[in-house]
Amino acid sequence: MVDNSNKYLLQVHELKVTYFPANGDPVRALDGVSLDICSGEVVGILGESGCGKSTLASALLKMLPPQAKCEDGSILFRGRDLLSLPERDLRAIRGQEISLIPQDPALALNPVMTAGSQVSEVLRSHLPLNTQQRRQGVLDLLREVGFNEPQEIYSTYPHQLSGGQRQRIAIAQAVACRPALLIADEATSELDVSLQAEIVTLLSQIRRQHGTAILAISHDPVFFAGFADRMAVMYAGRIVEVASTDVIFGRPLHPYTQALVRIATSSVVTGAAKSARLPVIDGETPNPTSLPVGCRFEPRCCERMDVCSRRYPPEFMPAPLANVNCFKYGEHVD
């Protein structure tokens, strides 16, 4: 057997995260999520709101809110289990090895600190640089994320910047210490279409130049096109399909993925004549406090079988490098 531990940068195995709200039933946000990310790879996580994708992002940095608990599983980063590391070691990893690009650039920057000093803070907390070196480092970073006049940007405050510029500052913070893995949680969903494209281009460029692996999270399949190498589709706290982006878009396996891609295709590509209706997925995402026993998509699935409501489908591999949790692709005897 080949030892795979070097090949993978990050290995998430059977991760289970539960929220214990102060009043109300516990909610299992992640229910056995497994995912591997190789160095320099862009992995996309596609899922709708409430599927647990943001919980996954916070769990990877062990920055879950206090009422959430990792109940089971492991997160191996370069062979070390992040879940068992003390806060000191985690702090050294955050920002230096794994960085999170926050969701809403308008809220993610400190309103009373200059853009430059916020980038500088990240350098300061990880690298032994003097003031001069730090300033130079920040200016280089600002230039790298697309500011032509970094000196001016250095001393501006967030409220003086546009949404796209703020997101660039956040990216500069995230890549300041050349992390091996970037997590982009809905990093463009608050921006205009044209800015979204620019940010995706910037992220691709960072990955090319520094070999940074990127875990990109979005609810919009279009975001991943031409950007992600592989994609994982999440539904109600579980990953239902992992495959290369080509397969996800070209020959999606899981009925949920198929429906999502169909919706995206019809609304985006055709711009169909008015009065034609868009394809939809009937129903709603299941209530996280009372999940179905079997496949979680079963109540909304148009290809459901008897077995689907009884057992959760195991992982099948109908094509090379494509894993799917659906009984369509395997024996369905009980």
Partner: peptide
């Protein structure tokens, strides 16, 4: 400008979908 950026993303996506299906 609006259209181009929207279409750019669309085109990539259409290519990805079309390439296989």
């Amino acid at each position: 400008k609006q259209l181009v950026s929207a279409k750019l993303a669309t085109a990539k996506f259409a290519a990805a979908v079309g390439a296989q299906g």
